[in-house]
Simulated assay, not measured.
Amino acid sequence: MHKDLHEANRLSWNAATVAHNSHKGDQAAFFRAGGSTLFPEECELLGDIAGLELLHLQCNAGQDSLSLARLGARVTGVDIADEAIDFASQLARDSGIPARFERADLFDWFDAAIHDGRRFDRVFASYGALCWLSDLGTWARGIAGVLKPGGHFTLVEFHPYAMVFDPHWTPHYDYFHAGPVTEEDGVGDYVADSGKGLAPVDYQPGIVQFNNPHPSHEFSWGIAEVVSALIAAGLRIERLNEYPYSNGWRGFDDMRELEGRRMAPPAHLPTLPLMYGLTARHG
């Protein structure tokens, strides 16, 4: 476990979150008008969540959390970044959608929640969450510790195979490498890179040519490592899907935009797994 690197990442995410939200226009008005940032994949894997207690891990600035709350869940979002939690809390107030947001290193939060006996029907994480975790075993045991018996964990994540490529589709990074890999440029402005893919309503130029002053540190986890960690924590894998596109994120050169803001490799490349999703049951 590298909690010193988690803290360094907090600083990098604080800076990046300001840039990301500068492109998204009036988000409170978007939610008041019934908007949602969810994609069909996470909704299908989660199923009906109305009336359930739902924990959103690494919730970022809360847009997906509020979209889940609109579906009837009682949502608690947790994130390490101060800027993200402050923004999410204000967005909940301004949009009139109730949700609870708590700032903490996720591993510290799990320890406190388990000690206090907090339990949830659903635990959810998505899109670029796992690369910030320095220990998958601690993460998986934390999920198991806060799930109610019979509860489900749902994950939708970018496929680790896709992460071996640099932005030009050239193999560059090791698949079997747990890190940490230090990025001196820190968390980048992937919202600006993706345009309306990640800011579907009223995209704004916002902060231009963002430079993050804080380096970031990432960890690479293969699908087998993720699944094995969840099984070792006592969870039962019920479903595992792979997808030949990425939702919203235009992470590589010349990506084709498909229906529903899905991004696929350019036509001259073969189909590649760019996302995966899974569900795991407690007990």
Rank of each mutant, 00 (worst) to 15 (best):
L5Y: 13
L5S: 04
E7P: 00
R10Q: 07
R10H: 02
L11W: 09
H20I: 04
N21K: 06
G34E: 03
G35Y: 07
S36Y: 12
C43D: 10
E44R: 12
D48E: 15
I49E: 12
C59E: 01
L68M: 04
L68W: 01
A69C: 12
L71T: 01
G72Y: 03
V78T: 12
I80E: 10
I80F: 13
A84C: 02
Q90T: 09
S95M: 07
R100P: 00
R100D: 10
R122M: 03
S126V: 03
G128E: 02
G128T: 03
W132Y: 10
L136W: 07
G137V: 06
T138H: 06
G142D: 09
G150Q: 05
T154G: 08
E157G: 00
V164A: 11
P171M: 05
T182Q: 11
E184F: 12
V187E: 09
Y190C: 08
A192E: 06
S194L: 11
G197K: 07
G206W: 00
G206F: 00
I207W: 00
P213E: 14
E218P: 01
G222K: 03
I223W: 06
I223E: 08
I231L: 12
A233Y: 09
L235W: 08
E238K: 15
L240S: 03
E242K: 11
E242P: 08
M255F: 00
R261H: 13
P265Y: 00
A267R: 02
L278V: 14
R281C: 11
